[in-house]
Each structure stands twice: as structure tokens, then as C-alpha cells.
Design a protein around this nucleic acid. Sequence first.
DNA 1: AGAGCTTTAGCAAACGATTGCCAAAAACCG
DNA 2: CGGTTTTTGGCAATCGTTTGCTAAAGCTCT
Lengths: 358, 358
Amino acid sequence: MKNNKDLPVEEHSGPLMADVARLAGVAISTVSRALANPGRVNEKTRAKIDAAAKHLGYTPNAMARGLRVGKSNVVMIVLPGSLYYGVSQVIPQVLQGINRSLSQNGYHLMIANLDRDETSERHILDLAFGGTVRGAIILSSDLPVDGGRSLKDSALPIVSLLFDMSHAALPSVVTNDRQSVREATSELIALGHKRFLYLAGPVGNYHDNERYLGVLEALAAAGLSEKAVVRSGGTLDYQHGFQIGVAAAAEFADLTQKPTAVIATSDDMAISFMSCVQRTGWKIPEDLSIVSFDGAPVCEYSSPPLSTIEQPVEEMGQLAVSLLMERIDAPERGAAARHVISSKLIRRESFGPARPSS
Amino acid sequence: MKNNKDLPVEEHSGPLMADVARLAGVAISTVSRALANPGRVNEKTRAKIDAAAKHLGYTPNAMARGLRVGKSNVVMIVLPGSLYYGVSQVIPQVLQGINRSLSQNGYHLMIANLDRDETSERHILDLAFGGTVRGAIILSSDLPVDGGRSLKDSALPIVSLLFDMSHAALPSVVTNDRQSVREATSELIALGHKRFLYLAGPVGNYHDNERYLGVLEALAAAGLSEKAVVRSGGTLDYQHGFQIGVAAAAEFADLTQKPTAVIATSDDMAISFMSCVQRTGWKIPEDLSIVSFDGAPVCEYSSPPLSTIEQPVEEMGQLAVSLLMERIDAPERGAAARHVISSKLIRRESFGPARPSS
DNA sequence: AGAGCTTTAGCAAACGATTGCCAAAAACCG
DNA sequence: CGGTTTTTGGCAATCGTTTGCTAAAGCTCT
């Protein structure tokens, strides 16, 4: 390395710990201890050091510390490929809940990905194995894989949010999708509805499974056949939320026996569905009742206001973080509990009694 | 440091560069060169090294590299306090555009903040001054400050997105808000509208300023007085988008001279406003025309479908990233251009000719 | 004042990679 | 085969912090 002492001044980052030590008139190791472990140093010198640090605008170099102690203060969040995946409208709230909790614990939030292509997978694993992140919160049912590496094999503390991955030894924070949908369906049945249209999410998706099962359970409990529900869609990803609703409306128009109630698995599809069928003369809720899922704020202002099952995503994010903190502090793989937070139906004008005629 | 050679095996992270070197039968420095600068090493040995690295699942430690070379591969995004700030619906798209471009350039995306309290400010500055991030994209008109430190003073390459901060020497990527609103307003005037209601964002907000000026310019160009427009709201933050619309609808109900056209500065407020005034018997667009701003996908499915001015946020994000990359490569403070990307009005059923009666 | 205590200085070895340097080895060429 | 070029090996310093250690210093208390 070329000795560049001859240069006028090095365009370095900022003041170093050594600078603080010099200014405070103490040893560099004392500065380190004062900053990291305030208890182990005399109050007076600690104050002196603090003052010096503040005066210089000193900020410890995170990479140097991270390298030394072998851990970082960053947590990454892994998203599913399609941003919308069923909670489109609530992503910002999820992030907010997570970020707030992380901040309180002194961590930073890194977005590992938004797409889920090969490049992204590699990036995610680089973050995990390159020591950049200390933990991960994953909102997806499949763990990233690239080349020989897999997130599953990393020693990284991970918790799953919105998807139940307790079977894969990941602590999971989920809502009681199935039960909520069952209750909503039962409520529709009690209102006299006997034929249903179910607007599906992508086939095989965890949330679609759960929610559809909820419908079936309610039918069974009421002594109705599975034939009482028509499944629509399932070929499109949640990403195309609005398109699903449009397609479903076309499908609805072709049905000879019209259902009297619709259960949608996301607000987006419910909104576009309503818009389309209303345009063809159907009245909601007089002709057709609708209930959907997500709890997007906009539902309150659709016409008619849309009943939706709201997930307390912010609370869920916070819980996910605190579980992650536990795993970081006590990295016991194994005991992966499934934490259920109740979602709840918000009743609005989009549903009512079934028409006597049908 | 205690010598712990007696411990069975160290729960280290993973394989080191030294392990790769050993397996490939080459020197550690050769491995480093092969990985970082593939050109400077024989193709055959490079292949051997690659194979060894892949076999071990080797991932270079980002913090060690970062410490050594004095730079990281992380870019942070600084958000305004309220998540919604006028582009609520499009935050995910913005992030997506930014993240995709960053990935292509080998960078990772860190969310510096979602709130904007004191803790967040400190975190942001820690990231900036602690060497964690290599650059920043800021979506806010005020730069973080904490204690003695200010983002302004950091040597960090920064670009501003959505807000024009070229006056503060930050390259900025913005839309032509004012012009778009002016054109939309002119279009309404051409349709015979003479009295307007303007649904304002927070007073003093850059976007609110620009958009309101657009309205005024259109009025002036048509020879109309400024009195032709009633300003509503301005006390609530964009965060409360829907509430602004609700409040504005109440205000609208009290007006003795009803406007025939409404210009809203965000889709959220337009949607809730429509919902409320429709409930009191007003017909849109027969009685009242509405145009809003943001280009949220949901507008296509409101009733009636809402005309809105769409901002190409993904494209803007990409441009912001490429500007940032330039700044990183050639850190010339100064020449801070303002890059304008055109937004455009999407015409839907929410507006039409003014009623002759008024 | 000396014993017993807490606090600090100073030293040095990490953490895991990058990089300049020079010599050794290998490959290439006529 | 000698000479030239390309490629490697080894060494050592470096990035900025943490941390264990020992010894020195400061303090309190009898």
C-alpha cells in the first residue's frame, strides 16, 4: 500500500475513536468501554467522553464493530415475488410495524427483495451468508435458494410472518384466516344465502387454502354441500388483484345459477368485481352480498362500503420482531411455535339478507 | 482474548476465503483477485477457485470487505414522516423501481425510517455517518438532523425523489405537477366549469404548492379570478388522505355557491370525498366533476372511475438510482440538476361538461 | 500511611477481507 | 534453450473497533 502521508488531508469518513480519546484525554479502550458499556467506567470520565464525541460529531463505524464482534445490527425482510400476494394494501403498515419495533431494539431494516427472480435470490443469500444481516423476517412460503446455498441451511434466526412455517421450524405469526372466513360465511348463511361464489387467490397459496377451507367448514357446519360454492379464478397471482375481480365478474355473468353471496380473498379483487357487476345492473347488497379479506382502508369508501376481514398487521409485525429478538438472544433452533392473532370482520353495507326469490 | 482452541468447534459463520484458497490449492490473495477482478487471473485457476467457492458455499464477508475498502454496498431510502404524503398508494411501486435498479448495480436497499421521530433521525444519521450506507435517496423536503449532526454535512451522495431539492445541491427527480394540474384544470374550464373546489394537502408541502399553483395558472390563463377556486383542507397531513376527503365533503355541503368541479391532490381524498357527496345525493360527473392526483390503480374501479394524474414512479425510481450511481462514481458536489418526468392525466368518467344550470 | 478497592492506560491480538510489493514459477516465443 | 511475458505465492500492512490482560493510578477507610 502506498504511503500517502504526503497528501494534504485524507478525505476520510469522519472522526475516529482515537480522535475522541485524544480530545477527552483518555485511552482509546476507555472510550470504547464508555460507549458500549457505560456501567464499567466512571461517570465523570464517561461524561467527558460523551462530550468529546458529541463535539466531534463522532459516529462509530458500524462495519468495523460488526466485523469485530461478528454480528450486525441489521435485520432483513424477505418478501414474496409478487408484492401484492394478498395483503397488497397493507405492505406499508407491515413495514411500519416491523421497522418501529426494530428501531426500538437498535436494529435497522433492510429490504432483501421485492422481486423474486434469480438475481434477488442470490442477493438474499449474500445478505444472509455474508454476515450483513443478523436475522430475517420472511413473508413467503418458500425459502430462497441459489446455487448450492439455501436460507434453510443458514444459522440465521428467522421468523415467518403471515405464513405458517412452523412445520419448517420457523416461529410463525399468522392470523386465523380460516376461522374468520368460516365465521363470515356462517353469517352469510344465517342471512339466508345458499349459493356462493368464491374469488380465489393463486392455487396452492397458503392463504387461499386456509380461506377456502373456512368456507367449506362453514358449509359443512350448516349441512350444505360443497357444491354450494363456485370457485373462481386461482390462475392469476395475487399481484393481479384487480384483474382477478374483472375476470371473475365475466365468469359470474356466465353462470346460469347465480350465487347470492361472494367471498373474495382480497380487497382488490372484491373492489373491481363490484365495479364490474354493478355496471351490468346488479345491485349490492340487494342482489348480491360481498365480503372480502385484508382490511384495506379504501374499503370504507367504496360503493357500497365493503365488508372486509381486517388483519392487525402492525401488531403482527411487532410480534414477529419480538420473536426474532428472542431467537437472536437465545438461538435455540427447534421450538417453533405458531402465534395466531385474530383478524376480525368489519361489517359494512356490502352484505345483507339473501333475496327471497333465490 | 482467551485462547479457545480447546473448544470442540467454533460456531463460526461459514467458510473463509482461506478455506477456499486451501481447497483450490492457491494462495489467498489469488482467491481475492479472482473473485474481485476476474480479468487479472488465469482462466483455469479462476475456474478452479470458483468451483471451490461454490462447493464450500462460500460467501465473502461484506463487513470485512466494506471495512477494508471503506465503502459499503448499501443505499438507504429516507422517507417523510407520514408514509402517505401524497403518493400513499404508490410507495410499493417506488420501492420496487428503486430496488430493482439497485440490485442491477450490486447494491442493497435499506429502509432508513418510516416514522420521523427523534429516534428515527438518529438512526438515519448513524447509518450515514457510521459508514453503513454508500448513498441515500430521500423522499422528503427536510434533511434529517440530530444533535450536532446533519445529513447535509455528510459527504454521502444523495439524490432527492419526488421533491425538488436542487436548490440544496441535490439532484432531484420530480414530475411536472404544476403543469399537469394546469392542463387538467384548463380542460375542466374548456368544459364550461367556472367554480372549483381544491382539496389541499398539508400547507407548505412542496406538492401542494405546485399543484395549487397549477390551478391558479390555469385560471389566470382563462381570465378567471383566483376567487373561482375554494381551497379546502390544508390542516391535515397527507397521511390522513381519506379523512381529508370526508372533511372536505362536509365543507362542500356548507358552501352556498357550489363549485362544479373538484381538483383533489391525492386519490385517497378524492375517493372518500366522492363517496361522501354521493351519499348526500350528488351525481358524479353530472353535478360535479372530479380529477385527482397519484394514479393509484384502484381509481379505475371506483364509482365512477376516477380521473387521475399518474406519475411514472417506477421510472422515476430508476432514474434516481442512476443519478445516485453517477454521484457515487464521481462525487462532484455542485451541479445538481432537476430532472422532470412527465405525469399524465388519465381520463375516466369522473369528469364531464359543467351543468348548464350553474 | 498502608491496605483494599475501583478505575484507567497501554498493549496487542483479533475480526476477514484487500492490496501493494517482490520474488518465484510457469508459460510462451523465436 | 535463453529471454520475455504472464501468472502466482507469500508477506505484511491496513480498515476501525472490541476486548483480555497487566500494571499503574486514584480513591476510600481505618
